[in-house]
Simulated scan of single mutants.
Amino acid sequence: MTKKKESKGELFKTIIIAGAIALGFRSFLFEPFNIPSGSMVPTLLVGDYLFVSKYSYGYSRYSFPLGILPFGGRIAEDVPERGDVVVFRQPTDVSISFIKRVVGLPGDRIQVKNGILHINGEQVKRTYLGNTKARNASSVIDFKVYEELLPNGTKHYIQERSDNDSFDNTVEFTVLEDHYFMMGDNRDNSRDSRTSSVGMVPAENLIGKAQILFYSHDGSARIWEFWKWPFAIRYGRLGDTII
């Protein structure tokens, strides 16, 4: 009887230690995140799974599960660079996490004119690469793909349906102190800092920097269709770094 109690006690202890290690890894090092929408296409696709480095920008209350630690600001803070792909808590609803690209730093003036990003009055260079197509429930949509070159030399891909869509002409925003201006790479299908539902993102709301893809699937296999799983995996994306 005593041995059974000791055995149960050891099992419980092992579970507690394993849980603490997993919680610490997730809170201080890397947190997994999946892509549920197309707002970061072509960089990130629906069905991508990635690791977010929690230490890249230091730690805030949102670095921890449910934001349970009641402190303000950031500890061991480092600042994002323009062009970083960042996971953050939505300012208007901190229960929701978003992933977008940093295009505006504190003090920057950001504006979109005829679909082209302008930073501090200067047009950001974009180079046309070609067309791509995406299918929704009822039609096929044509997109133009560009390489965008930010002022710090960071290059990444974006796509545009047109240069006259909802947020292709904006007012000029001045980024607040300790805030960042975020935009999706799928410029005509992204709820980001151009909208009042998101707005500029406080530094405190940053969770971490998107670093590497560890899994990706195209959605063609349902959870119970295990025989289809091998054919749904996008093998070419596994292990890709995120830029």
Rank of each mutant, 00 (worst) to 15 (best):
M1F: 08
M1Q: 13
T2P: 15
T2Y: 14
K3I: 10
K5G: 07
S7W: 13
K8E: 02
K8C: 05
F12V: 10
T14V: 00
I16M: 10
G19H: 01
L23F: 12
R26D: 06
S27Y: 01
S27W: 00
F28N: 04
F28Y: 05
L29K: 00
F30D: 00
F30M: 07
P32V: 09
F33A: 13
F33G: 11
N34T: 09
N34K: 14
I35Y: 09
S39L: 11
V41Q: 15
P42C: 13
L45C: 12
Y49F: 12
L50V: 05
L50H: 04
S53T: 08
K54Q: 09
K54F: 04
K54E: 00
Y55N: 05
Y55F: 11
S56N: 08
Y59N: 05
S60V: 11
Y62K: 04
F64A: 04
L66T: 02
I68P: 03
I68R: 03
P70N: 15
F71Y: 15
G73C: 08
G73S: 08
I75K: 08
A76V: 03
D78Y: 10
P80R: 03
E81N: 15
G83C: 05
V85D: 06
V85T: 13
V85G: 02
V86T: 11
F88I: 00
R89Y: 05
P91G: 03
T92I: 07
V94I: 12
V94R: 04
F98L: 08
F98G: 01
K100W: 07
V102D: 01
L105H: 01
P106Y: 06
D108A: 10
Q111W: 03
N114Q: 05
I116D: 01
L117E: 09
I119V: 14
I119H: 02
E122I: 14
V124T: 09
K125H: 01
K125W: 01
R126F: 00
R126D: 15
N131L: 10
T132M: 13
K133N: 07
K133S: 09
A134M: 11
A134C: 00
A134T: 07
N136D: 14
N136E: 06
S138I: 11
S138F: 07
D142S: 14
F143A: 04
Y146W: 05
E147I: 04
E147W: 03
L150W: 03
G153H: 04
T154F: 08
T154N: 09
Y157C: 04
E160Q: 15
S162A: 11
S162F: 08
D165P: 00
N169P: 15
N169R: 06
N169H: 09
N169Q: 08
V171M: 04
E172S: 09
F173E: 08
L176R: 12
L176I: 05
F181S: 06
M183C: 04
G184C: 09
D185G: 07
N186I: 01
N189E: 06
S196E: 07
V198I: 11
G199R: 04
M200A: 12
A203W: 00
E204V: 14
I207L: 06
G208D: 00
S216C: 09
H217F: 03
G219D: 00
G219M: 06
S220W: 01
A221N: 01
A221T: 02
E225G: 04
K228C: 06
W229P: 02
F231Y: 13
A232W: 00
I233P: 01
I233G: 08
R234D: 10
Y235W: 14
Y235C: 02
R237Q: 14
R237E: 13
L238K: 05
L238I: 15
